[in-house]
């Protein structure tokens, strides 16, 4: 069964007196163990799509199913808390906390089962994305962009979720750091059996993924290429 699926997803934005259709009856599904990328021109609605499947906004019509159950029924808040992890382009870490605390915040919020020693678990997760203990205790603003993004990934995976949703996570990073981040996502999908869905502008990064979903601005729908 698909872990995530959209049914007739429909979304518009106000455009003067009219409403511009961004997503028009979008039907797409995602499986565990695969790395998905979403390509599309600026303003095509790829981030909007991502925000809908991440339950950061509500669709006008249609529904999103997680393990066959509508996320509206699960509850948007609960779905974000227990079922998905989100990685943003601008990291969105809490600035007055250090890396370790940022990860531990997510772990304390989720209802998913965590290890008794939460701190040790957080340090291990940070270590797995290349953040050592020394850096883990540094304030966020004393880390580089690439390090901050790795902390954001650690935070996303720390809650034992099956779906990682990433909005252009390499958008603010240099080429080498971007490669490292993509490697982490690939490992998450292929080694830890996660479903990774990533929005990107880069055809090169998209080529590294298992499935590419291209958002067509004319049809406001996806073209799937593998």
């Amino acid at each position: 069964m698909n872990i995530l699926e959209t049914k007739n997803l429909y979304f518009t934005y106000p455009d003067g007196d009219q409403r511009k259709i961004i997503l028009n009856e979008v039907n797409v599904s995602f499986d565990k163990g695969k790395f998905y990328t979403i390509l599309g021109a600026s303003g095509s609605g790829k981030t909007t799509f991502l925000s809908l499947i991440a339950a950061l906004d509500k669709p006008e019509r249609g529904e999103i199913l997680f393990n066959g159950e509508a996320i509206e029924k699960i509850g948007y808040e609960k779905y974000r808390r227990d079922d998905i992890g989100i990685v943003f382009q601008s990291y969105n870490l809490i600035p007055y906390m250090n890396s370790l605390e940022n990860v531990m915040v997510a772990m304390s919020i989720t209802d998913n089962e965590m290890e008794k020693d939460m701190k040790a678990q957080a340090l291990r997760i940070l270590e797995s994305v290349g953040i050592d203990e020394n850096k883990a205790k540094r304030r966020i603003n004393r880390l580089s962009g690439g390090e901050q993004q790795r902390v954001a990934i650690a935070r996303a995976i720390s809650t034992n979720v099956d779906v990682i949703i990433a909005d252009e996570p390499t958008g603010n990073l240099d080429g080498k750091t971007s490669e490292m981040i993509i490697d982490i996502f690939k490992k998450l999908a292929h080694e830890q059996n996660k479903c990774v869905i990533m929005v990107t502008h880069s055809e090169k990064i998209a080529a590294e993924s298992d499935v590419v979903l291209k958002l067509n601005t004319d049809t406001q729908n996806f073209e799937v290429t593998s």
Binding site: A54, L56, K78, Y79, R81, I94, R155
Partner: peptide, 15 residues
């Protein structure tokens, strides 16, 4: 922004 982050992490509004 910080509130948005907590909401994105699924934190309850009450908390």
């Amino acid at each position: 922004h910080e509130i948005g982050i907590y909401l994105a992490l699924g934190e309850r509004k009450f908390n």
